[in-house]
Design a protein around this nucleic acid. Structure first.
Length: 198
DNA sequence: ACCGCGATGCCCT
DNA sequence: GGGCATCGCGGTA
C-alpha cells in the first residue's frame, strides 16, 4: 500500500449523522473526508471539529431558530453539507446532523492533508485545499462530490476545548464543544492547560 | 510567545 | 451599518 492511495472503507451515511451532534463530532475524528473533483480525489483525515447545537446555542447560525436562506440547509435533515461564507473571503464546511427540522451541525476545522493537498489547519484552509465553496452547499454527503469514509483507522485520544472564535455568548463560549486529536495539523495546538480529555 | 489589524463581502430577531 | 464559526502578516518581546 502506497502513501498516496486513498484509504478505502465504509462511507458514513445519514444514519451516522442523525445522532447527538456531540457524538457525531467525536466519532468523526480520524475519519477521512473525501472530495471528488473532475476525476481527482482530494482527501484528508479529520482531526478538529466543532459541534453547533441549534436554536439554544447562541453561537450557532441557527440560534433562536433562525430560518433564513443561509441556514435553510441545516433544517433539511442529516448528512448534508452546510457551506457558508465569512470574513469576506473564506468558506466554511459543516456536516448537518440530527433529524429534519433540527438545525444542528459539525464544523470541519482541520484535516491532516492527503498527498498533494495543501495545508488544512483551519476551516478556511480546509475549503480552499479541497475546492469547496457555495456550489456544495446542501449536497448530500455521498459520492460523487463529497463524503466521509471510515477506513478502520483506530481513533486517537480525543481532547475537548472551547470553540474557536466564539465570544460574547455567555456560557456557550466556555462549553467544551471543540473536539480534536493531537496532531500537527490542528488550527491551534493542544495546550494541556486548556484541554480536557473526553 | 502574544497581540493587533487589514482584507473583503455577505448576512441580517 | 455592524458584525462575522478567518487568515496571514508585522510589531513587540
Amino acid at each position: 500500500m502506497t502513501l498516496d492511495e486513498l484509504p478505502t472503507g465504509r462511507i458514513l451515511d445519514a444514519t451516522f449523522f442523525e445522532r447527538d451532534t456531540r457524538a457525531v463530532a467525536r466519532d468523526l475524528l480520524d475519519k477521512v473526508l473525501v472530495r471528488e473533483l473532475d476525476g481527482r480525489l482530494l482527501w484528508g483525515r479529520l482531526v478538529e471539529v466543532e459541534a453547533y447545537l441549534g436554536p439554544r446555542d447562541l453561537a450557532a447560525h441557527s440560534r433562536g431558530g433562525r430560518r433564513t436562506a443561509r441556514t435553510e440547509v441545516m433544517f433539511g435533515g442529516p448528512g448534508h453539507a452546510y457551506v457558508y461564507f465569512t470574513y469576506g473571503m473564506h468558506w466554511c464546511l459543516n456536516f448537518v446532523t440530527r433529524e429534519m427540522g433540527m438545525p444542528q451541525a459539525v464544523l470541519v476545522r482541520a484535516l491532516e492533508p492527503g498527498p498533494g493537498v495543501g495545508r488544512c489547519g483551519g476551516p478556511g484552509l480546509v475549503t480552499r485545499a479541497l475546492s469547496i465553496d457555495r456550489a456544495l452547499n446542501g449536497v448530500p454527503l455521498r459520492p460523487p462530490d463529497l463524503y466521509v469514509v471510515d477506513d478502520g483507522a483506530r481513533q486517537r485520544r480525543v481532547f475537548v476545548t472551547p470553540r474557536v472564535g466564539v465570544q460574547g455568548t455567555g456560557v456557550w463560549e466556555k462549553r467544551l464543544l471543540r473536539y480534536v486529536v493531537d496532531s500537527p495539523a490542528l488550527s491551534r495546538p493542544v495546550r494541556r492547560k486548556r484541554v480536557r480529555t473526553l
